[in-house]
Design a protein around this nucleic acid. Sequence first.
RNA 1: GGGCGGAUAGCUCAGCCGGUUAGAGCAUCGGCUUUACAAGCCGGGGGUCGCAGGUUCGAACCCUGCUCCGCCUACCA
Length: 861
Amino acid sequence: MQKTNFTDFPKNYDYKSAEKKIAEYWESNNIYKFKNENKECSDDNSSGDFSHIFSIDTPPPYVSSAHLHVGHAMSYSQAEFIIRYKRMKGFNIFYPMGFDDNGLPTERYVEKKYKINKSKITRDEFIDLCLKETKIGISTYKELWQALGISVDWSLTYSTIDAKCRKTSQKSFIELYGKKLVERRDEPIIWCPSCRTSLAQADIAIEEFDGILFDIEFSSSSGEKLIISTTRPELLGACVAIYANPSDSRYSHLKDELIRIPIYEHTVPVKFDESVEMNYGTGLMMVCTWGDAEDVKKWKEHKLDTAIIIEPSGRLNEKARAYAGLNVKDAKKNIVEDLKKISLIKNEKKLRHNVGIHDRCSTAVEFVQTPQWFITILNNKAQFIDAGSKINWYPAFMKTRYDEWVQNIKWDWNISRQRFYGVPFPVWYCSKCGEPVIAEEDELPVDPAASKPKHVSICRVCGNNEFIPENDVMDTWMTSSLTPFINSNWANFDFDSHVNSSDNTNRKNKEIKIMPMTLRPQAQEIIRTWLFYTVVKSIYHTGDIPFKNVMISGWGLDKSGKKMSKSLGNFVAPEEIIEKYSADALRYWAAKANLGQDLRFSEEDVANGRRLLIKLWNAVRFFITNINSIKSNEDFKPIFGTASLDKLNSADLSVVDGWLLSEFQKTLKACEEYFESYEYSSALRIVSDFFYNIYCDNYLEIVKNIFWEEDASFNDRKVQSLNTMYYVSFNMLKLFAPFLPFITEELYLSFYKNFETEESIHQCVWPVYRHELINESAAKDVAVLLAVLDLSRKLRTNLNLHQNHKVKKIYVYSPDAQLMEIVRNFSTDIMSACRAEDIIISEKADFGAGGDSKIYISFES
RNA sequence: GGGCGGAUAGCUCAGCCGGUUAGAGCAUCGGCUUUACAAGCCGGGGGUCGCAGGUUCGAACCCUGCUCCGCCUACCA
């Protein structure tokens, strides 16, 4: 089906209709489908190739798409550049999209959107709203990613609330319980008074606040006045000890004394600990039930009394007496006033101090004590650090963040959340003695609130036959930390009994052998959560790392350099940019920053992307429409198609063609090296430079006038050039394809596919570097031609001649005989490039680049 | 407090395992429209490479210290 009449090739690239059409083409032709070994091969000729799998542990974004902006488009595009490259390198790509919809982010989003909170609505109603928003979110995401050209296999989609994920998550819990890596403990935990749930350390951000350090007068049992500094006078009622440094001679005599607490009048012991800074305040420190992590630490180490004064609601309880019922802030205000009345506040000092806040709602967290499930972390830090160093980090410096985080963790991972929308614990408790009953794998996924234990009918401890469900849900990271397990169907989820998707072609009940996965792309702010927790799970379940490579993207910034965020309002909507400039142009912008670097949004850069598209279109159109410039010569047949062009040899071509092939090889090699090291930005730059400077500005300029020549004697030269252009333009489009998937596909489908076999340029094989095409002598010679061309352009500017004005004669001269020889050999090219009807070697040429010019030209018009 | 990243033309950035007059795009100025592209082409101007030292024949690049910006991390109550 070799078709050669391309004169009607469209003059303009209509990206709006083309991108839509192509996205549909990809979808309906399964271009990005993972070739699963279990799949019947009837729908295409692909068989499963498990030796070359490149699997991606895609970040499951939380599903409320209301926060999406071009920064997200940026980071997903950046990962996708690498993925498209790997696909063309021949890898069988496993690229799923997941949605992390269970958990607090979605709950908070629903609370805000419907102006409700979890105490004003039933659990079921709440979950229904969350599921509804989840559904909307997924479809919005999908629409945007498809418009952006993100090449995921949508049949691999999962949602962290679906049955498969619930089963995976619960199986993980059960297995860790069996390995004694998860246990229930009743101890102080970090608590968000606003979300009314316990949290893990990773959910806490530390923020600087302006506070006041109060110097409060206490008295010892022997009547001595003692000044103690604290930022939290509202916790006086919860004070359980006073601490001093053991080597602080000022206080050693207090060893056996009791200290009387102002207002509350109870007494507490004096304790000594190295950690107390003698120079801070008066060197005395008040320890309460639990004002901060330090209090918890001392409480644990020194087995202090417990005097809980803050309730989960964030209000003080009856222990606070006059301040009962007040929230922390009001209680502080009132107690300070009261202390002032009795003159016990001796000094106030403004203080910048760090307070832990819940990173989902910015509320200052407190400590409360209730039973929670914990995954052991602290005992195995060394293993996690070790795992981190077995992963390849791109960029490498991001690993520091992981190491520092792991080293600094202070708490085991609390996975209990007193919320509604999440994966339930597969756990019941004996209604009499509280002994937990853990579900078994064959009853998963299970909702303990809706069913009874399958394998246990009487409590093994007390013989009771009644069980109550665990009402907490698991931390959302408990599930998202399992993405490699979800992707590989580690839980052997049976899709046949849970049909919840119209497309199950890739969903087999068997486990897929893709662990450790090849690549984890993600954002830097979730190193301590998603990345760390995934490592934890993988080490615990498999003893191995969860993925071999991780790439960490930077942030999308607004024009002024601030991190873009929907809630701050400084965002740009990707849909609008795509509409205005095309998805390829947006992706072009996303490729401007190398991995890990922040990138400012710049509409100008997106516009530059669109310029590149237009120029690409026209450059290729020039080639295509000139195929017909070859006149009726019967024996002439241009050779097209990768198979035949691989034999292309510079010996059969003009020097200029040979030079172009040579330059392309260099570009290809560099481009490939950049891709291999995840430096996609440099990869795009080098291809663009080649396209603009070498292909358009020089090669096409030299060659284009040859195509106006009607004389049949130019046929050979035209054929050489056409073949060269086929090879170079097609392969160049392949290098552009990871960045600009739409226009490269459109050009492929409308032209190259006539001579090629693949359904899509994205399935075409990446160009193979051919060292034998490197031609340094052509490069040296063409440099002379380019010098003449450069002079011609400058001279035209000097003479106010337009670049296409045809001159009668061009005179060229050089005192260097070798140069003149090269000039003679290039006379056709010089005439073409310089728009001259004739070329004369003559000393009449007097225009040089100045200084030590070796070559001169002049015109005669 | 500790650490990481960045500071190069008006703007956004490349160059940084030392080596001829430091590059690109945008912006700016001048010129150019019949024959791929005016969402274009050609040409020009514009930088003592954050500051201060040091190593070297030679530093944007290596070393030391400092300043500013961003981020991560941290128990000074």
